[in-house]
Design a protein around this nucleic acid. Structure first.
Length: 295
DNA sequence: AAGCTTTGACCTATA
DNA sequence: TTATAGGTCAAAGCT
């Protein structure tokens, strides 16, 4: 197991390229656990402090993905692996047989900075500088070829611009063309009252999500949705986003020294909502829209 | 009518 | 100190 390579994981039948969305990154976020828990980082004023959260000493993303995967830190602390193709956790031994009470936990611990990368993007453009350098380090180029013709990764624009179906409600509050990427970034805030969680979605012109960055954490449980999508197309559309892997970075220096991967906790907390209901839970506004259109 | 996206302007951090 | 880039605001329009 310790020799599991990125390629192996890619080839693994257990890796479902159509697994769920980036929220696994959220669920798999790590840095918040060792510090005593949830940390929507806040300044003294109560505002989230994102900029100061650059943790140079030991960001995971400085390591090769294979190292990350092989890390006993990761393996020993959970039953899970991050799928390099999906960014999802296979959750071995957690196929719904475990505690499924996702609603039992008061909040979704998604406060770590999470970056998920769409695979296609890496073959068409190299990342440039700084963080992107790190990203490249995490991407075994040999494996990029595996995604060569994977056109099913195309993501409808509504997915990109809305919420990428992680179960939370997101409202777009800005878009910007940034220099270090050829793709525009869309800025989203969680629509839940008083929730400071944000995410930045970088998407290519053709609608492919190339990167998602989560900032801040949700201070509320994931909304429960009861709607069941009848549209297979919508379901399919939702599935096409295929983050190649998840990188987490603690963005609080206080957490640099020890990065904990307590996924077991996360499993219990979020798995149901991810695997059990996530197919049913839709982008809430999107569903409203579709519903309206159907009427 | 509410909630969303769009988009230009503005603010702030960084080199 | 200044220029630049990234992030956010907020008005307007749309669904």
């Amino acid at each position: 197991m310790s020799s599991t390579s990125f390629t192996d994981l890619l080839a693994s039948p257990g890796v479902d390229c159509y697994e769920e969305d980036e929220d696994f990154g959220v669920s798999g976020s790590v840095s918040l656990f060792q510090g005593g828990g949830f940390y929507p980082e806040r300044t003294g004023s109560g505002l989230p402090k994102f900029k100061t959260a650059q943790p140079p000493p030991l960001p995971i993303s400085h390591y090769a993905l294979s190292d990350f995967i092989d890390s006993p830190l990761l393996l020993s602390s959970s039953h899970t692996l991050i799928s390099p193709t999906t960014g999802a956790f296979p959750f071995q031994g957690f196929n719904g047989t475990s505690n499924n009470h996702s609603s039992d936990f008061p909040w979704q611990p998604s406060s770590a900075l999470i970056e998920t990368y769409g695979v296609q993007d890496h073959q068409k453009k190299p990342y440039g500088v700084q963080d992107h350098q790190k990203k490249q380090d995490l991407i075994p180029h040999e494996n990029n070829q595996s995604f060569g013709s994977d056109r099913q990764l195309k993501v409808p624009s509504y997915m990109v611009s809305r919420n990428s179906n992680d179960g939370y409600g997101w409202r777009k509050y800005g878009q910007k063309q940034v220099k270090k990427s050829e793709n525009p970034r869309s800025y989203f805030k969680c629509t839940y009252p008083n929730c400071v969680s944000k995410k930045i979605v970088e998407s290519a012109s053709d609608g492919q999500i190339t990167e998602i960055i989560y900032k801040g954490g949700h201070n509320h449980p994931k909304p429960e949705f009861t709607k069941r999508p009848s549209s297979s197309s919508l379901a399919n559309a939702r599935r096409v986003f295929n983050p190649s892997f998840v990188v987490t970075e603690p963005h609080d220096q206080s957490e640099n020294s020890s990065i904990s991967f307590d996924y077991s906790d996360l499993e219990q907390k979020s798995f149901k909502s991810e695997y059990g209901e996530v197919d049913e839970e839709e982008d809430q506004p999107e569903m409203k829209r579709l519903k309206r259109e159907g009427e």
